[in-house]
Amino acid sequence: MTQILIQGMLLSGLYALIAMGFMLIFSIGRTLNLAYGAYLLVGGYVYFWLCQQMGLPQIVGFAGAVTAGVLMGLLKHRLIVKTLNGDHVAIEISTLILAVVLQAGVVLLFGDSSKILLPIVPGVVTVAGAQVTFNILTATLISWAVIIGLYLYISRTHTGRAMQAVSMDAKGAALSGVDPDRINLITWGISGGLGALGGVFFASYTQLYPGMWVAPLIISVAVVIVGGIGSILGTLVVAHIVGFMEVGVSSWSPELRGVFTMILIVAVLVLRPQGLFGREETH
């Protein structure tokens, strides 16, 4: 049981970081960014290329991965989201296709065999019979730091409050002098950076492979749907529910890992469509 608690806590921190960027776009831009997993894919591969293939320091790898994610987010907003002008179905299909194209690009550049990222911080410690790598411990601590930083940014800065305003009512925010387009652009950039950073940690915890964008996307969708729109707290809590559930199910029956997450999504959609912590939308 202690092992499940420890491993669940570590995995949940990582899931929270991964889902946070997706939640921002869904809450502020009202867009299901189905290419979100591609940020993780690109972030992981950029880090791998810079650190393991080019031999550059880890800080350069992180900077390169986050920069690539931010640029992808900004470009996606400018070239796809803005161009399609609020057509959500078209945006979702386009972003999904973009993810598939990026996957093909990764295959072209790196091949389709899996790559293993070296631990960001090597070493392992045994806690209550569970092996805890310094790598996942570091990933979890950094995830928490980023999430707290994001919370402070959104709640205490002018841009953050503008993001909240756009999230609640874009037209009302515009009438109050906020530029929703600029806020959306910033949000897409932040989302891309968070996704790419999550990708480095996710890849170092698991592996790098061209199809690695799918699993984090499913986790993000699950967390945001179950947590509800516009709630950092909801995202955090549900990331922990999903993380603990996955670890618990894996310890009991590894083949069923992920199945209960799907059941949870369907149950919440049916019983509480606004999510456990989300506000009800009024139109």
């Binding site: 499940i4 092996q131 996942i136 915890y205 670890v247 618990g248 894996s250 310890s251 083949e255 890992r257």
Partner: peptide, 16 residues
Amino acid sequence: IVYDIGTVDFAPIFSK
């Protein structure tokens, strides 16, 4: 212990 081929997190499986 049988696991899915898509498994990428083996920590709980090794604990088991």
